[in-house]
Deep mutational scan, measured.
Amino acid sequence: TNFTTRQLTELEKEFHFNKYLSRARRVEIAATLELNETQVKIWFQNRRMKQKK
């Protein structure tokens, strides 16, 4: 998935405060950013892996 700059900014901002999202928060973010819930979930999984390295 190619994310827009706005989407990436918002996802990174959320990640800064929360490494893990509740389902409710994931649904909320997905709706706000016009993404589906799975895209948000996978982005967070990938971002956590990236941070571990």
Rank of each mutant, 00 (worst) to 15 (best):
V27S: 06
N2C: 09
K50V: 11
T32N: 14
E37T: 07
N18A: 04
K52M: 14
F15C: 02
R48M: 12
T32I: 07
K19N: 15
V40Q: 01
R47E: 12
Q39E: 12
I42W: 14
F3I: 08
V27N: 10
F15W: 07
Q39T: 12
I29P: 02
H16V: 11
R48Y: 01
N46S: 10
V40T: 01
M49F: 06
R25E: 06
Q45F: 07
E14M: 11
R25C: 00
K19E: 15
I42C: 09
R25W: 02
K13N: 01
R48W: 10
A24E: 14
R26T: 15
T4V: 00
T38C: 07
K13G: 03
R25S: 04
L8A: 06
E12M: 05
Q51R: 04
E37D: 05
A30V: 01
Q39I: 04
M49R: 10
T1V: 06
R6C: 10
E37R: 03
Q7R: 02
K13Y: 04
T32Q: 13
T38E: 14
S22Q: 07
R6L: 11
E12P: 00
R47A: 07
E12L: 05
Y20V: 14
F3W: 05
L33G: 05
K19C: 13
F3M: 09
K50R: 12
T4L: 04
L21C: 13
F17G: 10
E10P: 02
K19Y: 04
E28L: 07
L21Y: 03
K52R: 12
L33Q: 03
R47G: 00
Q51T: 08
K50H: 11
Y20I: 08
Q45K: 07
N18Y: 05
K52Q: 11
L35D: 00
L33T: 06
K53R: 05
F44Q: 02
A24V: 08
R6V: 10
I29Q: 03
L21F: 07
E37Y: 00
T38S: 11
F3E: 04
A30H: 01
R47D: 03
F44A: 01
E10Q: 13
K13L: 04
N18S: 12
Q51N: 11
K53N: 11
V27Y: 11
F3A: 00
E10F: 09
N36S: 15
K41R: 11
L35R: 00
R23K: 13
M49G: 08
R6H: 15
K19W: 10
Y20T: 08
A31R: 14
W43D: 02
L33N: 03
E14W: 05
A31W: 05
R23N: 09
Q7C: 00
H16Y: 06
R48C: 10
I29Y: 02
K53V: 14
E14P: 01
T9G: 08
T4D: 05
E14S: 04
M49C: 07
E28Y: 07
T1K: 08
H16P: 02
N36K: 10
T38M: 12
Q7M: 01
Q45S: 07
E12K: 01
E10K: 08
K50G: 12
F15Y: 10
F15M: 01
R26K: 08
R47M: 08
Q51E: 15
F17L: 14
T5F: 06
K41L: 10
E28S: 11
Q7I: 06
R26H: 00
F15D: 00
R47I: 00
A30R: 01
K41C: 12
T9A: 15
F17S: 14
E12N: 01
V27H: 15
L35T: 03
L8Y: 06
R25V: 03
A30Y: 04
S22I: 02
Q45H: 12
N46Y: 09
T9C: 09
T4W: 02
F17N: 15
A24P: 07
F17H: 11
E10N: 06
H16L: 14
N36Y: 05
E14I: 06
T38L: 10
S22Y: 04
T9K: 15
F3P: 04
T32H: 09
T9L: 14
Y20S: 12
L11P: 00
Q39R: 05
R25K: 09
S22L: 02
E37K: 01
T38I: 12
K19I: 02
R6M: 09
K52D: 09
F44C: 04
L21N: 04
E34F: 09
T5V: 13
L11E: 03
L35S: 01
R23V: 11
K19Q: 15
V27L: 13
L8S: 05
K41S: 15
K52W: 05
T5Y: 08
T32F: 11
E37M: 01
I29A: 03
T4E: 02
F17E: 14
M49I: 07
K13V: 03
L8C: 06
E37S: 08
F44R: 00
Q7G: 01
K50D: 13
E12A: 03
T32Y: 10
T5R: 09
F15K: 01
M49K: 08
K13Q: 08
W43A: 02
E28M: 09
L21S: 06
E37G: 03
R6T: 13
Q39L: 07
Q45V: 07
H16Q: 15
N36A: 09
K13P: 04
A31K: 13
A30E: 01
R25L: 05
Q7N: 00
T38G: 10
R48G: 10
E28Q: 11
F3H: 02
L33R: 03
L21E: 07
Q7H: 04
A30Q: 02
T5K: 14
E37H: 05
E34Q: 10
Q39P: 05
N36I: 03
E10L: 12
L11W: 07
A24R: 12
R25N: 04
V27A: 14
Q39Y: 07
T1M: 12
E37I: 05
I29D: 00
R26M: 15
F44D: 03
R47W: 02
T1F: 10
K19P: 15
A31S: 12
T32P: 03
R26I: 14
V27Q: 14
N18D: 08
I29F: 01
F15V: 03
T5M: 11
E10C: 14
L35E: 03
A31Y: 07
R48P: 03
M49P: 00
E14K: 03
E28R: 13
E28A: 06
E14D: 04
H16I: 04
T38V: 10
I29T: 04
Q7T: 04
Q45Y: 05
V40D: 01
K52C: 12
F15L: 05
Q39A: 12
K52S: 15
T5A: 14
E12Q: 01
R48S: 10
T9V: 13
I42T: 13
L11G: 04
N46I: 04
N46G: 08
E14Y: 12
K41I: 11
E37W: 05
R25Q: 08
N2F: 01
L21K: 00
F17Q: 15
F44T: 07
L8H: 06
E10G: 10
R23M: 09
I42D: 15
Q39W: 03
W43S: 01
R6E: 15
K13E: 02
I29E: 02
Y20L: 09
K52V: 09
F15R: 03
K13D: 06
K53D: 15
N2M: 06
Q51G: 10
N18Q: 05
A30W: 01
T4N: 06
L33C: 06
R26V: 15
T38Y: 11
T4Q: 02
T1E: 15
W43G: 05
I29V: 10
M49E: 14
R47K: 07
H16D: 15
L8W: 05
